[in-house]
Design a protein around this nucleic acid. Structure first.
Lengths: 201, 201
DNA sequence: GCAAATTAATGATTTATTCAAG
DNA sequence: CTTGAATAAATCATTAATTTGC
């Protein structure tokens, strides 16, 4: 685990687990008493002192905040980029078209395809699901809320204003012209990178 | 495999394999775009829609976590059992005693222990730490200032008055008789409550 | 062997937390 | 202090594995 004469604390997995559990259950900035108690408790699992606990909570809190902040920032940037592209890539107007580009690494066979958008649209428009979701939230934002990030999506091409990009819009009377844009090749490694960017940077 | 009119998605082996490979290679919480891409990709192997992919990653991530957590918890329980026995098999009577009462909720197995106070005292007396902290604030009040609340922790037993409880007292000549008292069972929920009291009240 | 019964996996929903913006 | 957005945890519900008695 930790070099014998290490100059700094190396928490054991048990210690980390307990600290995280405490943090999760509400201990964010323990006071002296709490720190002493926690320290005593954790000293069961390995060498530890008060300052370690103190600093752990400080750092953990800060890094959680940081993580969230970065995630939000990234999302915003991507969203804006997306809207930018949407705005300037004027497009042909089949009522529905869903373009998918796949460029998969060895384990995933390559595939470049153009699909009818009906299927794609249906994916997000499953009626039951939609209904269930809409019980709690605004229908228009459902996919955003559920799926988190929204690099790109379906925009109503009939309105040039781009004022209200909608995710998996549900229309019972008749669907407006929608287009799903995917701006980069899809590979596992790409997905991984993006995921890491979201998580770490 | 799956009943004809099944109410829920039954992934094909290929789909599961690909999903698992993606997860392994870093895709943990795909966003809407990624979900759409993955969905299109997997639709090659069978019926599938976005929500299936979304739910799959949610569930898979959660259950992987769960698996790990259970493993750790089991380890902890074993470890604590061992320590418990160890403690009551050999009980010395040291000059300083540190009484700790632990009454932990499920994740933290029960624990009753008796410690030598030397370690506890040392925790708060680390010289380097003291210095580092005092760079930014008044030394005497440092812990109070940093840690806020003070249920009260270390008291000098040589003075019966209990007039000046000190936090992490530093004594270079020789430690006075100190005793660490813990006045209530330490649980995550207790700590949380106290924390809330400190923050809100 | 083979169904009915029981248990384990896992897809789908709901509920609770989290941080930070307003 | 409240709310929005996202996510994790807990839970419900259905399908697959398996066990069991015949």
């Amino acid at each position: 685990m930790c070099p014998a004469g290490s100059s700094r604390w190396c928490p054991t997995p048990e210690q980390v687990m307990i600290l995280e559990e405490m943090y999760r259950s509400g201990v964010k900035t323990p006071n002296a008493t709490q720190i002493q108690q926690i320290t005593s408790h954790l000293s069961f699992y390995g060498k530890i002192e008060g300052k370690n606990v103190f600093y752990w909570f400080q750092n953990h809190k800060a890094r959680e905040r940081q993580k969230l902040r970065r995630k939000l920032t990234k999302q915003l940037q991507l969203q804006q980029q997306q809207l930018f592209h949407h705005y300037f890539d004027s497009l042909p107007s089949p009522p529905f078209q869903h373009l998918s580009y796949y460029n998969s690494p060895p384990p995933f066979p390559q595939q470049v395809g153009v699909h009818d958008a009906a299927a794609a649209a249906k994916q997000g428009m499953n009626y039951t699901w939609k209904l269930d979701v809409s019980e709690r939230m605004d229908v228009d934002k459902s996919m955003m809320k559920i799926y988190g990030g929204d690099l790109l999506m379906m925009v109503d091409l009939s309105s040039p204003s781009l004022s209200s990009p909608c995710f998996f819009t549900t229309t019972t009377t008749g669907p407006p012209p929608l287009k799903t844009l995917e701006l980069f090749p899809v590979t596992a490694s790409n997905l991984k990178e993006e995921c890491n960017k979201n998580n770490n940077g």
